[in-house]
Amino acid sequence: MTAIAGPLLSATINGVTYGATLFLVAVGLSLIFGVLRVLNVAHGSFYALGAFTAASAWLLISALGWPPLCIYPALVISALVVGVAVGPVVERGLLRWTFGIEAEAARENAQLLATYAIFLMLEDAQKLIWGGQPYYSGSALRLLGITRINGIPYTNYQLLLILVAVLVLIALRILLRGTKMGKFVLAVAEDPEVSSAMGIPVARIYTVAFTVGAILAALGGALASPTIGVNTGIGSEMIVLSFAVVAIAGLGQIEGAAVAALVIGVGHSIAVFFFPALSSVIPYATMLLVLVFKPYGLFAAAQVRRI
C-alpha cells in the first residue's frame, strides 16, 4: 500500500459515512421540493430535532438501565416521532395557505420566508427544551464493535449508517414505483391538477410527502447523533449542506441526491486529509461549480421527471 492510498481509502470510507447522513437529510428535502414545490428552509431543524430527541432517548435508556442495544430501535423511533409530530403541523398549519398564491415568484418568496420563520421558531424550541449545552451519546457508536480495514479501525456503526442509507434509497424507489401511494405521489409531483381530476386527494399527498421528508431529515439527525456533539446550530449548518446536495443533484432528484451526497461526503473527507483548512468549502464550491455549468443540477435533464 502506497503512502497516499492508505489515507485515501480511509478518507473514502469516512466520506461515504458522512455522505450517508447527508443523503438522508437531502433526500427528504428533495422529496418535499419534488412534491410540494417548497424549498423548506426549516428542514435543518427537523434534522436537529431528530438528533436531540435521539440524544434524550440515549439518556433515558441509560437512566432506566435498559440494555444499551435498545438505542438502535430508539434512534429510528425518535425520527418517526419527530417527523409525525412536526411534519403535519408545519405543512397543514403553517404552509398550506401559501399554495393558494397564484404568482409563482410571490409564492416562492412567501414560502422561503414562512419556512425561515418556522426555522427560527424551531431553533428556539430546541433551546427551550434541551437547553444550551451539547449532548454526547458517543458510546452508542462503540456498541457494535470495530472492523479493521487495512489496519485502520472503523466502528461498525459507521458501516451500519451506510447500510441504512442504501436501504432508504432502495425503499424509496420501491415505495414510489411499486405501491399505489407511491404512484399517487409521483403523479402529484408531476401534475397536481390532473392528479386531483383523477381522484387523487392532492392535499393529503402533500401532507404525506412532507411528513416522510421530515422523518428522513430526523432520521439523518438521529443516526448522526452518536457521531457528533448534538448542539444548537447543527440545524442551520445542515440546511445549507443539504441545499448544496439537492442543488448539485437537481431539485427533486432522489438517486441524484445519493450521488451528490457521496461526492460531497468523499470530497470533504479527502480534503480533510490534504487541505484541512479548505475542507468545509468543498460542498459550496462544488455546488457553485456545478450550477455554473449545469444550472438545474447534474441530473435534472428534463423538466418532466422530478422524482
Partner: peptide, 26 residues
C-alpha cells in the same frame, strides 16, 4: 376528464396511468 394537452404522468407506464384513477377513486 381528458385535458386538451393530454398530461400523461410521464414517470409512469401507460398501464399505471390507466390504473391511477381506479386506485384513487377506490
Amino acid at each position: 376528464y381528458a385535458p386538451e394537452d393530454r398530461r400523461m404522468i410521464s414517470a409512469l407506464t401507460v398501464e399505471d396511468n390507466l390504473w391511477l384513477p381506479a386506485n384513487a377513486c377506490g
